[in-house]
Design a binder for these strands. Structure first.
Lengths: 236, 236
DNA sequence: TAGTGGTCTAGACCACAAG
DNA sequence: TTGTGGTCTAGACCACTAT
């Protein structure tokens, strides 16, 4: 692990351990430089990482402060990998409805940037949170990247498998969503009345080298769908 | 403007001018160093900024590539300032339903971190996109930050006023949302049937020094609500 | 092996905030 | 005025990709 990543992790851990709250001040740069025995740039890099993650904010001339939102049970749309951390204390399980190798839809082929003739993995799951339906998920995986999947893998965290077992590095993702009414089939799976509100999401995941490997379409149970985003204003 | 910001802006402009697409390769670092006559760190800083904005991705040992999503008409949830840029070609207008100074609700006071006795600006608007209802927006502004508002300002972009006229620096925001059914009052304003699906968003905006100054509750017309997010995987 | 991006340093200097 | 974070440099060295 790189120095600045380790330092960032240490500082983050310290925030958790000391249960620091929004607005609490962290030590000054000089203190961190001494503590970790590294140059100013390395500390800055570590803090920039924490800032990107939405954990601190830096104020010139003043100090470094903790950024911590207070609401629990919201799904973070930035931490990519589905749920996990944001929902600690919440139990996520999956029921696998389909797992096979097939031709992608035109839409899937386009989003995965693969030839429509080329087979892909298809996975359809219903996901549950504390026993209640959370969402229906249909995923297409580029087979030349994700070469093998089985029922066991697909019942657990597919992303853990991809990064840990396959050693692939997940880089970034594009996420689109809109709101509408669910159809009869979706209503059945989500155990909701027909034409209930629904959140429809599409997400394309890329490796760090830019290659798309996963195109997913997710329909959320509106009763369980609470999301949050921490945005930074790089935009001016 | 700082060197690295200017360089980032120049590179971004060049991507637009040359109409580069997702995956297109940019010049190598050495070329940029020569072109702008700055050190490697400065170029790296500029490219990191563009990476945070979701405009490029960098691949070690390979190069720097353009990242560009293809779908148009989606509202970016990361570029903070409501709409504007993402919706070029789309006309956004506002109808002001209320503008006054009042005691905040308990909820607004909590989110703005002000005393419940302390008056705040309250603004309620309906926003239209190409003449169709887009959303209902109720906003509370911390009066000790946003000291003055009038009907003219509030009919246009409040954020432009805050940054340009008041000279305040908008830093980051926390955004929460869920999906449900709109009530009768909301249905009227959005010109939708009662109990239509709706997206309910709450957003807290902070200055760069961390002070919250705007708490907004927004109800979106589900027919006009298409959103996108470009996420990076800093999370591992 | 050569090319390319990433990390890290030490230090000079700048810009903003607080007292 | 002092403290604090931010920018920028020049250069050494490292890690990954492509060929």
């Amino acid at each position: 692990m790189l120095k600045y990543q380790q330092i960032a992790a240490d500082i983050e851990q310290e925030i958790v351990d000391k249960d620091l709250q929004q607005g609490d001040k962290l030590p000054v740069l000089d203190a961190f430089m001494a503590q970790f025995d590294v140059s100013k740039s390395t500390i800055t890099k570590a803090l920039d990482l924490l800032e990107k993650k939405g954990i601190v904010y830096q104020v010139r001339g003043s100090g470094i402060f903790v950024r911590r939102h207070k609401r629990r049970g919201y799904i973070s749309l930035l931490s990519n990998q589905g749920f996990k951390k944001e929902l600690d204390g919440f139990q996520i399980t999956s029921e696998v409805l389909a797992l096979d190798i097939r031709r992608p839809t035109a839409e899937a082929a386009r989003n995965l940037a693969v030839n429509p003739e080329e087979s892909v993995y298809y996975v359809k799951r219903v996901r549950y949170i504390n026993g209640q339906t959370l969402c229906i998920e249909e995923s297409y995986y580029n087979k030349s990247v994700v070469s093998y999947l089985n029922n066991e893998i697909v019942s657990e965290s597919i992303f853990n498998y991809i990064s840990d077992a396959l050693g692939l590095n997940i880089g970034f993702s594009d996420l689109y969503f809109n709101v509408g009414k669910i159809n009869k089939k979706e209503a059945e799976l989500l155990r909701l009345p027909d034409a209930s509100p629904g959140l429809f999401m599409e997400q394309i995941f890329h490796l760090t080298n830019g290659q798309p490997f996963d195109f997913s379409k997710i329909t959320y149970n509106y009763e369980q769908s609470q999301f949050f985003i921490q945005a930074n204003n790089y935009f001016l």
